[in-house]
Each structure stands twice: as structure tokens, then as C-alpha cells.
Amino acid sequence: MPEQHTGACHPEVAEVAPATSAEVGEVRAFWGGLGLPGLVDVHTHFMPERVLAKVWAYFDSAGPLIGRPWPIAYREEEGRRLERLRAFGLRAFTSMLYPHKPGMAAWLNSWAADFAARTPDCLHTATFYPEPDALAYVTRAVEQGARVFKSHVQVGGYDPADPLLDGVWALLAERGIPVVTHCGSGPAPGKHTGPGPIAAVLERHPGLRLVVAHLGLPEYTDFLDLAERHPELRLDTTMAFTRFTEEQSPFPKDQLPRLVELESRILFGSDYPNIPYPYLESLQALERLGLGEGWLRAVCHDNAARLFGLD
């Protein structure tokens, strides 16, 4: 395991293989050119190795929730993946993990707590599933210092408004702990995806700091509408605007002005390491929008730094 970076303003470049040195330089030039101290990525995945292996196998099979070939760009062991993020200059990142059935979440949270303890630049991440003990283990995760939760409505196949989660949402709203949720219907719809089910949660818990992953693709407009109705709702840019995503779920150009209006509530996310293109594409895709350097600074660093108290 490499020496751990603690989130200083100018993270040192870790040693990387020669084949990746150009990519590291370009990523660092991106945020350096904006005058930023680094990047904050709210949507990166770290999870137990055997779970991650199954996730990668699912991507390799182009399963029904994927629907297309999806080569993993950063299929490396955990230490190498951490080295790469630090080399890119990330001040903070997450360990997004999620259960697909009952009985998994508490175990995943235990792993994530250990991972956060040995990885101080990772925002301690936790998760949940609608089950009778959900509030108990979510409370335990909060007491252990969890700073962000992941809710994967598509993979979990559950209704986020399930009464078994009402206490969970209430607790997280009360504590002001953000929840990154994959609730849009991309890349393939689920039984409870789309704006309706999560809107029902927000009606019950309007103060919930919900971060809609992937800008809610492909229901971009609907989730922008939802953000305008709920001041604490945020959206992350994970995979949005990239050439890969634009092929099948293009962002409507007439909605770009709304991204400017909601500038303070858009957060950068990448989906690293489970992306089928270089990390740099996640950043260049945002730059290609032409929304200005101020918007890029807010999205790629300042908004998340403020949300998680990094400054």
C-alpha cells in the first residue's frame, strides 16, 4: 500500500507506470489550469475484492442492466487504483458500494469503515437496503463516522419509498448526510427507477441531501425539474456528457442553461474504476460544454468541498 495522502492542497504525484504518465499529467494540468488545489470525485467505487470481481464480471457479460459492451478501463488491484487517484490529484473520493439483496449492507458497511480508516482521503461511505434492521446498521455507520451513503435503486431493485427505509431517510436528513443515489433509468430501466419513486421520498423528507447520480440519465429534464423544487437536491456528472454516454443518452442541449442556474448543486463524479474510457474523458466532457471556468471550478471541486467541509 502506498503512503496515504491526507488531502493537502497540492497532492504529490505518485509513481505510475510510464504508459499512464501522460494521462496523469493531463488530468493534473486540467485542474491546475483552473487554479484548483485538486479534484473531488463523489462517485468512485471501492468494495471488497470478491464483490468487485462479480461487478466486473457483470460488466464483462454486458448484462441486462448494462445492455452494451463495457470494458473496464482500470482493472487493477486496490492499491494500484488508489495510487492512480492520488497521482491524478484527488483531494477526496468515495467508496461507493451497494447491496443487491437483503443481508449484505451491514457487512459492506463494516468493510467500508475499515477501508476509510486506512484510507484517510476516502470519504467514509456506507449503504443500505430495505430490511428490518436497516435503521439499526445505518445508525451504527453514522456513529462510526460515515459521511456519505450510496443508494442504488436500479441494482437493488427496490422502491426507495419503501416504509422499511423511512427511518433511514429521516435520520440522514436530520444529520445532513448526503446520499448518492442511482435512481435514473439509465443505462437500463429498473422496476423503481425514474423521478417518481425518489420524488415520493423527497416529499416526505424535503431536507434530505440527495445527490442524483449520472444527472439522472436519461431523464435529465425530469431530474432538473426535481432539483428546482428541492433546494437540497444535487446531481453528479458521473458519465454524463462523455462520448460513450452521448451515443445512447445524449444530454438535451436546450437544458444546458439550467446547469448554469444550478451551478452550486452540480458535483463531479467519474464512476472510476468502472468506466470504459480514460478518466480524463470525464473532465474533458465537462470542458466541452463551454460553460466557463467558474462553472468547472465549482463542479470539479468547490461544491463538493463545501458539502463535505474539506476547506
Rank of each mutant, 00 (worst) to 15 (best):
S61C: 09
G176V: 12
P37F: 13
E143F: 05
G184S: 12
P102K: 02
G156A: 01
E203Q: 15
R118S: 06
A113S: 14
P195A: 15
L310W: 11
A22W: 11
T181K: 01
H301D: 05
P273H: 06
D271Y: 01
R140Y: 01
L267V: 11
S110F: 02
L85V: 10
G309A: 07
Y279P: 08
R84N: 03
A112C: 05
G63M: 07
D41V: 03
L289F: 04
I72K: 13
L36E: 00
A29R: 15
F88P: 01
L85C: 12
E131N: 07
R265C: 07
W107C: 07
R28N: 01
G294T: 14
S61A: 15
A134F: 05
R297L: 04
G292E: 05
L172E: 11
G79V: 04
L39Y: 02
G67I: 08
P231M: 13
L296C: 09
C122E: 01
G25R: 00
V138H: 00
P120H: 05
A14C: 09
A53C: 00
A126C: 00
Y220P: 09
E246F: 06
G79Q: 07
L224E: 12
G309I: 06
A227F: 14
G103S: 09
G89E: 08
P11A: 03
A240V: 12
L224Q: 13
L226N: 13
V138K: 00
G32C: 01
G292S: 05
V13G: 00
A113I: 09
T193A: 03
H10P: 02
R175T: 10
A298E: 14
A161F: 05
R204T: 01
P37C: 13
Q284G: 04
E83A: 13
P273L: 04
P11I: 03
G103E: 10
K101C: 11
F88Q: 06
F59M: 10
R91H: 11
A200D: 13
P257A: 06
L108D: 08
D302C: 10
R306K: 08
E3F: 12
E174V: 06
Y277W: 04
A22N: 11
F88W: 14
A62N: 07
T237L: 10
D162V: 09
E83V: 13
P132S: 12
D302Q: 13
Y272F: 15
E246A: 13
M104Q: 15
E261H: 15
R81D: 11
A112N: 08
A116K: 04
W56P: 00
R175F: 09
E232R: 13
E143C: 05
Y277E: 02
V148N: 00
P130L: 03
P195H: 14
E174C: 05
T237Q: 08
F241M: 09
K101F: 11
G156D: 02
A146N: 04
E293H: 15
R50F: 12
S61L: 12
D271L: 02
W107H: 10
R80P: 04
L165C: 07
G33M: 08
G184P: 11
E26D: 09
V299A: 08
M1P: 11
M1E: 08
K191V: 12
E49G: 05
T237P: 09
A134W: 04
H182P: 00
L135P: 00
G269D: 02
L217F: 15
